[in-house]
Design a protein around this nucleic acid. Structure first.
Lengths: 208, 208
DNA sequence: GTCTATATAATGATAGAC
DNA sequence: GTCTATCATTATATAGAC
């Protein structure tokens, strides 16, 4: 199982890696097969030879990235104490890809999202019982925010003053995340106010 | 200032509204001028007549949406107790648009993101002093997560079992958000463990 | 202001040489 | 396995009629 970082890859692998990089960066819709071929240093024709079509290539990338990520993610979630984004460059790259795939409507990425929700819900219920009455909804919000934060990395990095995928930016992000996850933003009185507003809304929704 | 909901709009306004809807849904890159013209019920030629080019149309949409949202957002943030997404359909639509624009790299959307970070930082510092040492980084994470959650609305809705823009889904989302923001996910001992891991990481980053 | 028709460019797909 | 050349389709941009 060769790491994609290696330079001496087959053309097929270089095409796949180039596609993963470009799809993650701009999304599949905004990436042309010529861009991919150029970045991989091959001809557009070879791309078709190996993958048949752009869509088939996209699916191959999905399968490849998801396959390599699933084990790592499960491992991270279960034997890591926190919820910080991974630092390993490959994992970061793949996470960015999945995030884009989620936005592009990839079915396999969506399935992975659902897995993450289930995994998070189980983890939270096991480690922090009593946190919520509805672990699955809580985990849905948590997972959506995690991947959403990754999707917004460009803007979060700009606000942080450092790219969140560099060590410098990652440290700032992690510090903010620890504050974020260890101190409630809603104080009890604020929470009560919001809760009553929600109750009013719920009543209105059921009334109508 | 006519609401875009009205049916009796000029062709120019219909084009703009159709573009906003399609850009928000699929992103600007994946939307063709023909799609927009069709949805607006006009010819592609008229689109050019009014806006000159697809790119110019995108900028016009950016300016329009951002202009109409800025006041509403500021108002929301300052006289609303919570951080729940707005329910008003127009605001929801515009928020979705801005979220997409953020992902598509729109400069004006990015500027709005930065404004939101500043606004949030000020609000938090004023209402919940002592929450963090670095309000700006905290607000960067918070704003990134808020818009990111919106970007992931399709998947969050699926996990919630109801579209988060319908009353039913919104109630479930709001309930989960209240739990999320009022109970810390990191207990003190977990936070300490993560903090020490971060310190180790920081030392390593500075050492290298 | 609005349309039809067309020019130009870009894209994905294909065929065949090496 | 890899490339070059080319086709068919689709996109944007433009011109001119009504």
């Amino acid at each position: 199982m060769p790491e994609p970082e290696f330079e001496d890859l087959t053309a097929r692998a270089r095409i796949r890696d180039a596609a993963i990089a470009l799809f993650a960066e701009r999304g599949a819709g905004a990436t042309t097969v010529r861009d991919i071929a150029e970045q991989a240093g091959v001809s557009p024709g070879l791309l078709r030879h190996h993958f048949g079509s752009k869509e088939a290539l996209r699916e191959a990338c999905d399968a490849y990235v998801l396959d390599r990520l699933v084990q790592i993610k499960e491992k991270m979630l279960f034997d890591n104490p926190g919820f910080l984004p991974a630092v390993h460059p490959t994992v970061v790259r793949y996470n960015k890809y999945v995030t884009r795939a989620l936005l592009d409507g990839s079915p396999s990425a969506a399935a992975m999202f659902d897995d993450m929700v289930r995994l998070s819900a189980d983890w939270i219920e096991q480690h922090i019982p009593g946190l919520t009455k509805d672990y699955h909804s809580y985990a849905a919000v948590f997972t959506g925010m995690q991947s959403g934060l990754l999707a917004m990395h460009e803007h979060v990095s700009r606000a942080l003053g450092a790219d969140m995928f560099t060590p410098e930016g990652h440290v700032r992000l992690a510090a903010a995340l620890i504050d974020f996850y260890s101190h409630p933003l809603l104080t009890p009185d604020l929470a009560a106010k919001v809760q009553s507003a929600l109750d009013a809304l719920r009543a209105k929704a059921e009334g109508a």
